[in-house]
Simulated assay, not measured.
Amino acid sequence: MTQHHQAPGWTGPTAGRNAEQDAMRAVLRIAAMAESHGISFPVFPAVRSFLSEFHGLEHRPAQPGREVAAVGFSIDPEKARFRLVRLSRLAAGLRLGLFPVGVTTNDSVLAVGEDGQLLSFGHGGSWHLGDSALEGIENLASGVAPRRLADSEHAWDVTPSAAGGPVVGAVQAALTAVYVLHHHDVYTARSVRLTLTGLRGIGVEVAQRSIGIPRGPLDEALSPIVRDVEGVLAANGDGTGCEVRLAVEVPGAHARTPAGLVGFSARFGHRAMQADAIEVCLRVGAGARTGRIHGRVVDALRGLRPMP
């Protein structure tokens, strides 16, 4: 059993207490309620472990929080029974497995994620409370600021070489991202998607093409991809008056990162006065702000930032 120090205001379990029987009854009842709504919640080992020790734990803040206001909570899956459909929708949006384990005194649902983390969902948004469920309830009790689960974009400019121009610069940036994302086990790309979007009016898509990345060293893939991109541009007025975007595509099936959760792109032509300027962007979905994928994305972003 996980050992912990009981904080002021906690009532219920103490370190080493085993509430497995009561906890599993509550889990089965929640599973039956979810099934009646046509939804389901997987019972991860982390859920069993956490509820076996902490089912029945109650907390009411006895002192101010360290960084934010301390929050009270009750660890009992059945107290979240009226939020099951909404929690299922949130899990689908985050592309993350969740199981409800209780509620807070500010009317949020507590849920354990598939990597063992503790999350909360309520009127104030969705939050990562701790990398483990125990860490999460201790953070709630002591008022440690949580991490918000929200989509984010990290964008910066890179300078194309005078000899290569924006096409070569954008392809180089995309291939660098292919390597970095694979190296940090975020996802392994097999293609890049070229999109030309007109800058007039509502931005009509002019052309789109998926370009495969040749097998072998990535530096040898540069020339064939550049030729393909230049061929598409030549067939569409050299891309004049268009935003040219190269996105590093996520494979249809990847064991570690759901498609659409993280994506990299490089674009140029989007600025009238600096048509050759290249902007690169790592888009991070809310579901990648928690669990093991969060650390891998942070490391990947650190590897991408040195782009000149």
Rank of each mutant, 00 (worst) to 15 (best):
A155S: 15
R148E: 15
E230W: 00
L119K: 00
A266W: 00
G93R: 14
I39E: 07
P8H: 07
A207N: 11
G239H: 02
A145E: 15
F73Q: 06
I211P: 05
R289F: 03
R245F: 00
A207H: 11
H182A: 15
T195Q: 14
G287D: 03
A174F: 02
Q208V: 11
M1C: 04
A207S: 14
S74G: 09
A91V: 10
A247Y: 04
R193L: 11
R148V: 09
F82L: 12
G16V: 06
A272G: 13
A275F: 10
I225V: 06
G125D: 10
E138M: 14
V297N: 01
T176H: 09
G198T: 06
L282R: 02
L222Y: 02
M1N: 10
A259T: 13
P308N: 13
I213D: 01
L301K: 01
P306R: 03
S161Y: 04
I30V: 15
N106E: 13
A221N: 07
F121P: 09
L87V: 08
S40A: 15
H123P: 12
A92P: 06
P61Q: 03
F268W: 12
A266G: 03
A266C: 02
L94W: 09
I211E: 01
V204E: 12
V112W: 11
A275T: 14
G9L: 09
N236C: 06
P258H: 07
Q274R: 15
V206Y: 05
S191F: 11
C242T: 07
P13K: 06
